[in-house]
Amino acid sequence: MATALRTSEVTKIYGKGNSTVTAVDRVSIEVKKGEFVALVGPSGSGKTSMLAMLAALLTPTSGRIYIGNDELGQMDEKERTLFRREKIGFTFQANNLVPYLTALENVELMLRMNNQLDKTGKTRARELLVRLGLGDKLNNLPAQLSGGQQQRVAIARALVHRPEVVLADEPTSSLDTERAFQVVETFSSLIHEQKRAGIMVTHDLRMTKYVDKVIQMIDGKVTRVIDDPVQISILANTSSFEASDNYAEGYSSQLVIPMTAANNSRLAFGVTG
């Protein structure tokens, strides 16, 4: 599979002089087309900063980010805006949708911005929403949709313009467990079907059930990369919500990913970074 996204020693340092915080510390990751990756880590681990840099919203202090044929560091503000519009699909925790546009209009907005709102584009938008189970909600305003439905509209919007990379910022944070699983499962199957590179930032380890790779960040560094399906399934199944919640709130142990996962592993976890 072709590489869709690659970072090399990406570092983000906030502040100047003596009061600097290294949010992201020499992170090198790779995501292939058709691969769905979970970026996990507690609050303050740098995963959101990492996401922002991948989305060309934030400039790395050093290091390089390659998406498709583009090197993000070379772009000026205008090019980054255009890049986000064409190459990135994005879902957010909150304020996901434009409140005065219907579900269909929200999805079409992405095409409209890219001048792709032709007949095929319109059909694609409609089909995506139907595929996401919103066929009867096309003309509903966001306020008339549940949290899970809104999140699914956002997923459709993130995919409709065929971006290189789809980024999801905590897509399940406002959903109950059942809906959270449904949303991530659909998300995952669409990423695979449409051969996009998907990166989901989450602090809920149970959601890793549907991903191909888990990248764990702590203190700005990548501490683990799990790409073995067995390992991932063990990780997802043994993580209770409480555990993952504690994990998010603040960890004290180095062993954030439950030991059971490590014990059952044929491969030893390589601690990188």
Binding site: K78, T81, R84, R85, F90, N95, V98, P99, M113, N114
Partner: peptide, 14 residues
């Protein structure tokens, strides 16, 4: 603010 930020994040220019 949130909504405008979102629009800019998905590629709306200033």
């Amino acid at each position: 603010v949130g909504q405008i930020g979102m629009l800019k994040a998905i590629g709306s220019s200033n």
